[in-house]
């Protein structure tokens, strides 16, 4: 099983690769869409600002990589901004569109008295489709995961899990073989690694 981690040069993309290696994957950091061939699974990471990520993703040709993998059914996992990129766009960078695979927009977390960024462990609440998703196999009913983000998406039909921080937002989304998490499974200790392991399981059976 070979996993391509799409490396478009922003931030710490190595962490998710290291998490996948720790659960037994063979991982390549790939730097252009042209070199993403013959992979069994694809990971779209992302940290920092939506606009910078969206621009860099496009300039590497990874927008087509994701569209194609969704079309063909290659298991794909977006992480953090990698989740946000799957939506239509973000208030963080209104000029830069997202991939628009999922409907909805990324908005700034409502502040109130809460500190932003949302930078802490928090509990998932699974939706009906999330509770039976193979991505969360073996996890308890409301596992704790590590989040760090200032923007989030409102729940929609593709939502697998929500999280509450002042308001409910999408913690995980999925449709067919496309999955995404707003939290960082690679930074969420044993239970986070279980999610990466489950993703490999999905890759193995796809």
């Amino acid at each position: 099983m070979r996993i391509a981690v799409l490396d478009y040069g922003i931030g710490n993309l190595a962490s998710v690769a290291k998490g996948l290696v720790a659960v037994g994957a063979s991982v390549d950091l790939v730097t252009s869409g042209a070199s993403v061939t013959n992979y069994d699974g694809i990971v779209l990471p992302g940290v920092g600002s939506f606009g910078a990520c969206a621009r860099a993703m496009r300039s590497c040709g990874f927008d087509d990589t994701v569209y194609k993998s969704v079309e063909v059914g290659i298991p794909t996992l977006g992480v953090c901004v990698g989740l946000q990129l799957l939506y239509e766009g973000s208030d963080e960078s209104p000029a830069e569109p997202g991939l628009g695979i999922f409907g909805g927009r990324v908005r700034r977390i409502e502040q109130g008295t809460l500190r932003v960024p949302h930078m802490q462990w928090n509990q998932l609440e699974f939706t009906d489709i999330g509770a039976i998703s193979p991505l969360f196999k073996g996890l308890g009913s409301s596992p704790w995961m590590y989040f760090v983000h200032s923007y989030a998406v409102e729940s929609g039909p593709e939502t697998l899990a929500t999280c509450n921080y002042g308001e409910d937002f999408v913690a995980a989304a999925g449709s067919q073989n496309l999955y995404a998490t707003q939290f960082h499974p690679e930074k969420s200790s044993r239970e986070g690694l279980m999610i990466l392991e489950n993703f490999l399981g999905i890759v193995a059976t796809a």
Partner: peptide, 13 residues
Amino acid sequence: LISDIAQEFGVQC
């Protein structure tokens, strides 16, 4: 230095 790093890698880091 704060803004330069934040701009390149995000405020979260």
